[in-house]
Amino acid sequence: MSRVFSEKISTRVTHRPELERAVTLPRDARRRHIRDHTLEGHESVRSRGKATGGAAVTDDAMLPMALHLREQNLSLREQNLSLREIAARLVIIKGKKKGQHPSPATALRMLREHDEADSTVPAATATATATATATAS
């Protein structure tokens, strides 16, 4: 009978790197396999002209309301609205989920995308102004 591992098995050893590698290798291979098949499925659905993902729940009116609630939260410290409470006050007004509330993750994503768009616009404007000034000189 041959040994699979070169180290001797001891109950005192708390860290066995070879054993850990041997255990994680099949787990990682399975994850990669599932991920590859999922991506292939998404690609085949897209090639047939179908859309993946859930129903769109955000609209043009929801962002200003979420921004208003966040600003209200910042100005009135005693209210201290969480993302869950902001999402609970928002209502989806069209589509399959009409009348329901968006998830807190959707509210967070919507506010984050707005903040990122706001932070990139002034930087792009400043870069364009600096470039125009430098070329004019």
Score class of each variant (00 low, 15 high):
Ile86Leu: 10
His101Gly: 04
Ala87Thr: 07
Val57Glu: 12
Gly54Gln: 09
Leu81Ala: 08
His33Ser: 08
Gly53Cys: 02
Met110Tyr: 01
Gln100Arg: 05
Gln72Ala: 01
Arg84Lys: 04
Glu78Pro: 08
Arg35Tyr: 04
Arg77Met: 13
Arg70Met: 06
Val23Met: 12
Arg48Ile: 09
Leu111Gly: 00
Lys50Pro: 01
Val57Cys: 06
Lys94Asp: 09
Ile93Val: 14
Lys94Val: 03
Glu20Val: 09
Gly99Ala: 04
Leu69Phe: 07
Glu113Ala: 14
Thr106Phe: 02
Pro17Ser: 13
Pro17Met: 11
Arg109Met: 02
Asp59Arg: 09
Met110Arg: 06
Asp60Gln: 09
Leu63Pro: 09
Pro102Trp: 02
Thr106Pro: 05
Val91Thr: 13
Leu74Trp: 07
Glu18Met: 13
Ser47Val: 07
Arg27Pro: 04
Arg46Leu: 09
Ala88His: 13
His37Gly: 14
Arg46Asn: 10
Arg32His: 06
Glu85Ala: 04
Met110Lys: 00
Ala87Glu: 03
Ala61Thr: 14
Asp28Cys: 08
Ser47Arg: 15
Ala87Ile: 09
Leu108Gln: 05
Gln72Asn: 10
Val23Cys: 14
Leu67Ile: 04
Val91Gly: 03
Leu74Cys: 05
Lys97Glu: 11
Leu111Asn: 01
Leu76Tyr: 09
Ile34Asp: 03
Thr106Trp: 01
Thr24Met: 15
Leu81Gln: 00
His33Ile: 01
Arg89Ala: 10
Glu113Arg: 15
Thr106Gln: 06
Leu67Pro: 00
Pro26Phe: 05
Arg32Glu: 05
Arg84Val: 08
Arg70Gln: 14
Arg70Asp: 10
Leu76Trp: 13
Arg27Trp: 11
Met62Glu: 03
Ser103Pro: 07
Arg70Val: 04
Ala87Gln: 06
Ile34Val: 14
Ala87Pro: 10
Glu20Cys: 10
Ser44Ala: 14
Leu39Phe: 07
Leu111Pro: 00
Val45Arg: 12
Glu20Ala: 15
Glu18Asp: 15
Leu90Glu: 10
Glu18Ala: 15
Val45Met: 14
Ser44Phe: 00
Arg77Glu: 15
Ser75Val: 11
His42Glu: 12
Val23Leu: 14
